[in-house]
Design a protein around this nucleic acid. Structure first.
Lengths: 202, 202
DNA sequence: CGATAAAGTCACCAAGTGGTGACAGAATCC
DNA sequence: GGATTCTGTCACCACTTGGTGACTTTATCG
């Protein structure tokens, strides 16, 4: 049992990173905070991970912080006669639901929004890889729809997706956005219907 | 000239706040940083503003950090026979252009996105007031369109607006979003056409 | 002029940050 | 057994942060 103890504390450290991000975001993500949360001396962090960036990389690799696109596409399988519009709105709304469940992912999106450093680069690389995989599986499930042939349509997808993300992040600290009360399920329902309306109208 | 010197240094301090936010965001917005930027001893900040929150309030009041909705609505006056759809996309695209010009505003939006404290509350209050005024003037300019009679339509407006904001913020640190290259004017053009497409289709 | 009130400077405090070197205890290997 | 390697603890460093009291300088007013 030479290194099992070491492995154990390494694990504790990595888990502490996740806890801190989920609880209080990345603002307090420092050596001292991680050591405190893990109940471990900070010198061990340096010994086992040498760096905070390499610790973050380790964390990004093992914690699947990004919802697997393949997974939630399967959650809403394409019906035989389903229109591309219906499928598109279903996928985006599903993405919204998955993101709503993942506070840690929301924090990371915020982080990447406002800082560009070696830490966020690591997270970005991991996320892009997962998205690439997800798109592959979407091409199989809905070959006619992906990718949109016209860049205008692609832009519409991007606007709606970005809009949902922003509304979600916004709703964490504020309850109102342009007359919608994002603390109520009712108005989120209107948002989902708005998404459907957009794609049906196309 | 008893208090002109005092007024002058007060002004320097307030301007320093704006400079720091525009340059490096709100992350480094502290007493020491402000004093350093203004070339002033920090004790003066406490003497003149007593608090950092009150300093922020002062700053928010005098610097019109939020684009005046009334102003840019006038930039794109409604044509006589203009459809509500055309007007809606024009207004939102105009809002996008105004935000693109205001790095400080972008920073503040980010800030409100990820922190909720007395400082952001002050900024929030100031912004809501300006938006309220803007909506008033929009009701006059386009009485048939504002506010949307159906909440679904309101939600569409919110999604598109939020989407544009998110794409803008995202483009600062990343160049790609769902296949769009947001560092190129070309793909931003597609985004604008996507907005028009959405509203025309409704 | 001299007295008073304001403007600005300086030194200091406690607390927190990232980071390192020296040490004790235990496990390993010969 | 003994020597060495590894895990973990502790004390410490330099630096930054927010915040305050004591001081000097300057200007105002009578």
């Amino acid at each position: 049992m030479e290194s099992s103890k070491k492995e154990k504390t390494k694990q504790k450290i990595i888990e502490a990173v996740g806890s801190i991000i989920a609880e209080s975001g990345f603002q307090n993500l420092g050596i001292n905070a991680i050591a405190r949360e893990a109940g471990v001396d900070k010198v061990l962090i340096y010994r086992y991970f040498t760096d905070l960036p390499t610790l973050l990389r380790q964390f990004a690799l093992q914690s699947n912080y990004w919802p697997s696109l393949a997974e939630f596409v399967e959650h809403s399988p394409a019906q035989p006669n389903e229109t591309p519009a219906s499928l598109a709105s279903k996928v985006l709304i599903n993405l919204l639901h998955e993101l709503q469940k993942r506070p840690m992912t929301q924090e990371i999106i915020k982080w990447e929004l406002l800082e560009k450093n070696e830490l966020t680069e690591e997270l970005d690389k991991a996320r892009k890889e997962m998205i690439r995989e997800g798109l592959e599986s979407m091409k199989e499930l809905a070959p006619g729809m992906m990718p949109p042939r016209d860049k205008k349509f692609l832009a519409v997808h991007a606007i709606v997706c970005a809009g949902l993300v922003h509304l979600l992040l916004h709703s964490k600290n504020k309850e109102e956005f342009m007359g919608l009360n994002l603390k109520t399920k009712e108005d989120w329902q209107y948002v989902e219907e708005g998404v459907k309306l957009i794609f049906e109208s196309l």
